[in-house]
Nucleic acid binder design. Structure first.
Lengths: 258, 258
DNA sequence: GTTGAGGTTGACCTCGGGGCAGGGTGGAGG
DNA sequence: CCTCCACCCTGCCCCGAGGTCAACCTCAAC
């Protein structure tokens, strides 16, 4: 007799691949048809009908794992089940759209990973003639700060902005970066630390506002990490920072514990 | 010294799970930090920075496999790479939206798997008092026909509609369904087949229009499958169909070969 | 007889991790 | 000291919806 069609024809009729049909069999969504004398599956109309039903639901986005239940459920539950699937689809769509929006903000120019205000600060640093290496280091510190201490990020930015408006402070910053080429025991390092501490004490706003200081105090581990960033590649700067911090602490400034 | 933070803290800082961090290590997206004396990973700022960068891109929908390349690429390629990812995201979003739309059409009432016109035909069958079992069988045949011979589907529908407008034909259909309770050798079966064939020959439009007939002729395997659907559960109807077809062929009607 | 198309099973791959097993480590409390 | 609890380590299998590769078998045509 050789009743029915082979799997290839059945798959073609319904518009799927042979693999997919076998996959549905393995999941129990479509009954296995009888085999002919040579072991080939022979599909009759009943199996094709199931295949069409499963395919229609799958193409509509119903997860394969839920198709069995949907087909078993009669009328009343059927609509509810489909509505449920639709809700899940909507959620995933919204998530993907949000991702794409984030991506577009990232791709907007090369200013990835940081908001516009931070990019402006970095641009300003470049314009002031600060070393590109220093600017890059600040950029990394900002990226870290934003992720690790989001509550203190705006304060951190404000602190940087204020520093850039202070000509003397900018000069000190420039020298501090140049100090990297000095010997580690150069006596000028101590001098520079003292000058920096004096500047901070003369204008405490350079250390950040109240909210910002509190945020840092609440996250000492993060403060240490960000503050020590690039320490290995800039040992002189590290020593400079330590000396300056010591002086500030001695003057009563409540910096987070090291 | 115990420098740096453990994996759990690092993960919490960045807002991911410990598993995710280790996953990134395995993919080479974040450098493995040094281990302390007990074998624990100790994260410094450099690793955290990488983690933040990777996380930001991943959250924006960049596939992990592409993040390495994106981070390596400088400025110019960076934007292009992100734009590319954005395009892929848009494609997937469109696909999901299309799925959801399909789903909503399906969920609209219990009339799944078939278009409105077909549902109307089935409703009309019910209204005419035809047996629910018969209507269900016709529904399955329509689902199959739509998937297997889309070109002939509208013609098939039209054929059914015309039949429903023919009072005598409806009566014959009703009797044909009742015939299932007869013995397989009941002489009334032959009579009924003759009456059906006569009715078809009296109004050949009941067999479908030209386009429809051509579509069936081009898909004999599908015709056979759909025509023989439920044959196993309705042997009398099967015999009835065969007898009727034989008469029609004898009268010169070009039905597809069995 | 041979060739090419199409059938059979099975095992392994995708992507972004989640979950569990089995065991080690460190600090706090009885 | 012992125990509890939280945290860390590695390694394995799991998810969805199939794709891909391998090795072999069968059918129809030349």
């Amino acid at each position: 007799m050789s009743n029915g069609v082979t799997i290839g024809r059945a798959a073609a009729f319904v518009g799927v691949t042979v693999k997919t049909v076998r996959h549905y069999h393995r999941l129990g969504l479509v009954a296995e048809p009888e085999r002919d004398s040579s072991g080939y599956r022979r599909y009759g109309s009943a199996e094709l009908l199931q295949l069409v039903q499963v395919r229609t639901l799958a193409a509509a986005g119903v997860p394969l794992a839920g198709i069995g239940a949907v087909l078993d459920a009669e009328a009343a539950q059927f609509g509810a089940a489909l509505a449920d699937v639709g809700r899940q689809l909507t959620e995933r769509i919204d998530e993907l759209v949000a991702r794409r929006d984030t991506l577009q903000r990232l791709a907007d120019g090369d200013r990835a990973l940081l908001p516009d205000r931070a990019c402006a600060v970095l641009d300003r640093m470049r314009d002031l003639g600060l070393d590109p290496g220093y600017v890059a280091a600040q950029r990394e510190a900002l990226v870290l700060a934003r992720a690790l201490v989001p509550a203190g990020f705006d304060g951190f930015l404000g602190q940087l902005e204020r520093g850039l408006h202070d000509r003397e402070f900018v000069e000190l910053t420039r020298r501090a970066w140049e100090a990297e080429s000095w010997q580690p025991d150069d006596p000028r390092i101590e001098e520079l630390a003292a000058a920096l501490a004096d500047r901070y004490l003369a204008d405490p706003a350079l250390l950040g506002d109240h909210a910002s200081l509190r945020a840092w105090a609440n996250a000492p581990a993060q403060y240490r990490l960000i503050n020590n960033h690039r320490e290995d590649r800039a040992p002189v700067a590290a020593r400079l920072t330590a000396l300056t911090e010591a002086r500030l602490r001695a003057a009563g400034v409540p910096l987070p514990q090291r």
